[in-house]
Design a protein around this nucleic acid. Structure first.
Lengths: 211, 211
DNA sequence: CATACTACCGACCGACCGGTAGGGTACCGA
DNA sequence: TCGGTACCCTACCGGTCGGTCGGTAGTATG
């Protein structure tokens, strides 16, 4: 399995092995939870003994930390940095939603799911560090909502509440979405954009009242 | 603590003791996760030994099942059955959102949080039973969205996607909301209703285009 | 006073937990 | 040829896991 790699030809995969371990561990933790996955099981899945695995990792907790930062790296590279340069704030939000959704549904980026699910597993300053990176995304969304309000592209809503509604709608997907289910991911992206940005109340009729 | 109850005066708390255990266990599992909470810790918090606790519960897994069904009972009583009789579909949705949000923020109903968080902990037919009860709520929302579309009160959106956007926005709250934070729960209810039902795009201007 | 039942406990079970000590092997540049 | 280093092993640590056993104190009934 993982022995298919040979280092005969010289430098080959030395740095990749660590990533491989992170990804295997991420898959297992994603499936059975952090506390529900033992170091033995991870080691066995990596083709190692427990002690062998500990040659690569510092501790179980630090393994989770590394997985989460790895996930944040992927997210910032494939979503945040992609949409940040978009000048139009509304288009920035729409594209951000699309990329964020596909991040959860497609590309088995189990690391992202772990970040979403294990939100209260870490403690202390490692938790702070992850939360700081998460908050960067939240602030980005809040700013973009405010910007879109300023340009008159969206209504005067509470940017903070809008941000958490956005994040909830998008991040909740990992709890119910099935790749082979009734809803495809493209359908989901279009539907979510329609519901969230288009709103629910009808456009072309005077609304009687709202409490 | 829990010994404050005396059964001198006759029948007193025999059935309540079990609920007390469920609530104590729910609080702990909510704080530290199902796998992260041991039977010993729960027993100790109940003022019992582990063997004493096992007099009341069948197994750790069954304890979780009971907590979840208890939570579903509370939810159906305090949300579903309250909003189901509302005839106006849009008003039904708005009230449902309000009650659902307050369910997560106020009344420390830890059982609900557990149902939301531990969505993949159970397996087999116990999982099926809980999912069946959850699906009743999902179907109810889908039906209500369809109904509101039929009456012309909301736009022609995908009822399934709208339902999951609704559920995501509402159920994600447990991950970030702090009772003493910057956003109060009344503010959250009003803001969520505004964002979700009012939509984001402006009402009173012709929109140039949307991709 | 005997019976029966609920509630509960001390002691214990085998399995497994996260983590470590220390040794072995294969390959590296010097 | 000689370390040095990366990698991985067997064996083991103290502790905890979920769960069970036989037993007992208290109460209620007859």
């Amino acid at each position: 399995m993982s022995q298919a790699v040979r280092r005969k030809g010289g430098v080959e995969l030395p740095p990749n092995r660590y990533r491989e371990i992170l990804e295997i561990a991420a898959r297992m933790i994603c499936e059975k939870g952090y506390e529900g996955t033992s170091i033995q099981q991870i080691a066995h899945a990596c083709g190692l003994t427990k002690a062998g695995l500990y040659h690569h990792i510092r501790s179980k907790e630090h393994l989770l930390v590394e997985i989460m930062h790895y996930g944040m790296d992927i997210f910032e590279e494939r979503v945040l940095s992609q949409v940040e340069p978009i000048t139009d704030p509304l288009e920035r939000l729409r594209t951000c939603m699309a990329k964020n959704i596909l991040m959860v549904t497609r590309d088995r980026t189990k690391e992202i799911t772990i970040i979403l699910h294990e939100h209260a597993t870490l403690t202390g300053e490692e938790l702070d560090r992850i939360n700081t990176r998460k908050k960067r995304y939240v602030r980005f969304l809040e700013r973009t909502f405010s910007e879109a309000i300023a340009t008159g592209q969206i209504r005067r809503v509470d940017p903070k509440v809008a941000t958490f509604a956005f994040l909830g709608a998008v991040n909740w997907i990992y709890k119910w979405f099935q790749p082979d289910g009734h809803v495809s991911d493209e359908q989901l992206v279009r539907g979510m954009q329609d519901v969230f940005f288009g709103g629910l109340e009808p456009r072309s009729s005077a609304k009687p009242e709202a409490s």
